[in-house]
Amino acid sequence: MTIDKLTREDAIAEVRHEPDLSRYSLWQDGELVGLADYRQGGQDLTFIHTEVDPAKRTNGLASILIEEALDDVRTRTDLTVVAACPFVADWVDQHAEYQDLLSRGR
């Protein structure tokens, strides 16, 4: 799965799901600039760590990464998201339309 999304700087950001590595990765201009690691257990998909290149953090790339990852989880699975990563937890708190992912399947 890859998703292209325009960033605020009109550069293309691509989100890739890498299930063998248990992560979503974020690419810009052919360069890996971010990742969101997860663990899957039972009906839970737990986001444990999100990281974006410090030089790219002001471009909204972390938000793009999490939004696209959560959209993929929503459409591809019926898993419950556990936001163990503080960034993911804060992002979901600020985006009410994703909060159902925290309780579905329960």
Rank of each mutant, 00 (worst) to 15 (best):
Q94S: 08
W91A: 02
F87A: 02
D93I: 09
L35R: 04
V81I: 13
R74D: 15
T77Y: 08
T50F: 04
L79C: 09
L32H: 05
V92D: 00
G41K: 10
L70N: 11
D10T: 03
R16F: 02
T46I: 11
C85D: 15
A11C: 10
A55T: 03
E18C: 02
L79R: 06
D72R: 15
A83M: 12
R39C: 08
R76A: 03
G41T: 07
G105F: 04
I64G: 11
D10F: 11
L32P: 08
S63W: 01
A83W: 12
D93F: 13
Y24R: 15
H95R: 14
Q28I: 01
L79D: 07
F47D: 02
R23P: 03
I64V: 13
L101W: 12
H49T: 08
L61Y: 07
D37I: 05
D44A: 05
V81W: 12
I64P: 13
L79M: 01
E18Q: 09
I64A: 12
A96S: 14
I48D: 05
R106T: 15
I12W: 00
D78M: 06
A62Q: 06
M1A: 14
R57M: 08
L101R: 00
R74S: 10
L45A: 04
S103W: 10
L35F: 09
E14P: 00
R74H: 05
V88I: 03
L45G: 06
V82P: 04
Y38V: 07
F87W: 00
Q28S: 12
T46S: 13
C85G: 11
S63K: 10
T50A: 05
Y98F: 08
S22N: 14
R74A: 14
T58K: 04
T2E: 15
T46F: 00
A89Q: 00
P86N: 15
Q94P: 04
D71R: 05
D29Y: 03
D20F: 00
L35N: 04
V92Q: 06
V81F: 13
